[in-house]
Amino acid sequence: MKLLGRLIVRLVAVAIAVSLATFSLLSAAPGDPAAAKAGFAATPERVEEIRSELGLNDPFHVRYADWVTGVVQGDFGTSVLNEQPASKLIGDAMPHTVELMILAQVIALAVSIPAGIYSAQRPNGWFDRLTGAMSFGMLATPAFVLGIYLAFIFAVRLEWLPAVATDLPGPFDDPVENLRQLILPALTLAAGMIAIYVRLLRTDLIETLQQDFVLMAQSRGYSRRRVLWRHAFRPSAFSLLTAAGLATAGLLGGALIAETLFAVPGMGRLAVTAIFTEDYDVVMGVVLLLSLAFVIANFIVDALYAVLDPRVRHGNR
């Protein structure tokens, strides 16, 4: 309950800060949404008309209040481009981005947990050194560079996977095709996280494996697997969890890149298109939602922490 209260306070604080920041940023933008909407052939009178229709002549705080009132009611404004409600565009795009992020996290954890554990068991063994070098390389590879390599190898050369995800079916309509199209963008997103997770888990686990309670578990005759999973891994999972929460910020940025590169019809791509068409209602909606998603993701991490770590649950740490 206390956690939930803290979440709400934080959400509201971030929402106000981010919405004010984006709103003023976009208000100061040189482009003219009214002119954009009126089209090239419009007369100045027509533009002026649209301007007052859109309330662009009102003072800043009135426009901000209007916008916030709308958002609270689920109205993110209207896309200038095709008169569709911004909430619909965002609503259509969101599931793809959410799926992409979840997929990326799942891949990252599925790869890095076994790799990290195996490395930690034999520090400086061949596997440890190999994963170390690969992590180092992956950290040095910008997402768009990796994406291009992946597209070239798997889509152009091997022709195993599609290079674009434009006709992306829903995950429940056609799960196989959906996965086929999302796997490359998800890998692009996951690579950086894998590198971070492996290094982190390895370091943490090496330390945990030297701790007394692990040695004690060993000296009670427990099997290697029991010691590793039941005793060592869980305490080590905490820092991994924190990293996963923080990585969400990187994921949001990475989604811009991965979605653009592989033409995934998600929020990142929507934001990129919207910004170039000066479709500011859409941009603001996306930025606001992404920031809130970040706060929520970190809240989930905090909550999981409490579930996994009794020391936190009892406020004893």
């Binding site: 940023l25 976009l26 040189p30 482009g31 949001l252 940025g253 811009l256 910004i275 920031s291 970040f294």
Partner: peptide, 16 residues
């Protein structure tokens, strides 16, 4: 640290 830097740069770049 919490705010995705690329998103901010992207917004700034798109506007100015």
């Amino acid at each position: 640290f919490a705010f995705p830097a690329i998103v901010l740069l992207f917004a700034v770049g798109a506007i100015w």
